[in-house]
Design a protein around this nucleic acid. Structure first.
Lengths: 154, 154
DNA sequence: TGTGTTATTTAGCATTACGAACTAAATGAG
DNA sequence: CTCATTTAGTTCGTAATGCTAAATAACACA
């Protein structure tokens, strides 16, 4: 078997695993993967505007509106009008949202972290180097093409 | 920065790159990523039944029916009733479908393959080893849990 | 023959996502 | 200060993907 094929197959396995974990994860948090992703962003940033979330997720504002609607109805987040610019809406995490987040540790992350810690030091170092290498091989284009860099993207 | 964090960030970059490429790819083929995935499977296997595609994609049969409907309407594939078992429907690629496929080289694959070939031999070997390692760290559970292995899955 | 199993489709629903059109608020030119 | 423009978010209509449950058709075997 070709080395490239082996790599691509491994990459697909990784992608599929991520998807699977995403679903599990969402189930234990009581929301869908996308909704959870939004909640994670809000939690991470303290409070984001709708537009900032949309840009960060590379998604149209209308899409975020719909997702926030559902999260708000479920009581996970709430909308707060900005005082400095009343066009803006700040999305903030509610108590309930924070609880859901605590109940939903990222399964992929956990699994990987556990296994990773059991490895030899040199093995860890090798994995770090390779993953970074592969990531930059794959996503380099995006920044090279001059795509807009969004606030909080890094 | 923590090694684990570095890995996870790299993994997310890889996931996002894959998504981006998937969209590009599908666009040049004139169909959605999922539809293209079905067409690829059909092309690869010569002719699959609807059920086989569903199992391979880990998706409910009803979902495949809907996708095949669209692909058939667009003239990319056609349905043919099996002669040996008339409950089965064989999905076959049309001329038009094959053309679309030719027009859509897998962007991720291309990009990766190009870069990969430019690397030193030892570097290639290391990448192969690490990706396989990470893949098995992440997707091991699935087989361990005794999930059904689907025909053509390997 | 009849009963049970298997393959696919139909129907109805939820989620994600988009673009276009709209409202409200801020900003800038004159 | 006023009017035009831009920006932020929402609403509306549409499409794709995915599910479950129920229907339909064909096979299989006792």
């Amino acid at each position: 078997m070709d080395r490239i094929d082996t790599c691509l197959i491994a990459l697909r396995r990784i992608l599929r695993a991520a998807e699977t974990y995403g679903k599990e994860l969402a189930q234990s948090a009581g929301m869908t993967p996308v909704q959870l992703r939004v909640v994670q962003i809000v939690a991470e940033t303290g409070s984001s505007t709708a537009g900032a979330i949309a840009r960060r997720m590379h998604v149209a504002p209308a899409t975020i509106t719909a997702i926030i609607d559902k999260l708000e109805r479920a009581g996970h987040v709430s909308r707060e009008q900005s005082r400095t610019d009343r066009r803006q809406t700040h999305i903030v995490l509610t108590e309930r949202g924070r609880n859901a987040l605590d109940r939903a540790p990222d399964a992929l992350q956990q699994k990987f972290a556990t296994d990773f810690e059991g490895l030899e030091d040199w093995e860890q170092a090798m994995i770090v180097a390779v993953l970074e290498r592969v990531a930059s091989m794959l996503d380099r284009t995006e920044t090279q093409r001059g795509a807009v860099l969004y606030p909080g993207e890094l």
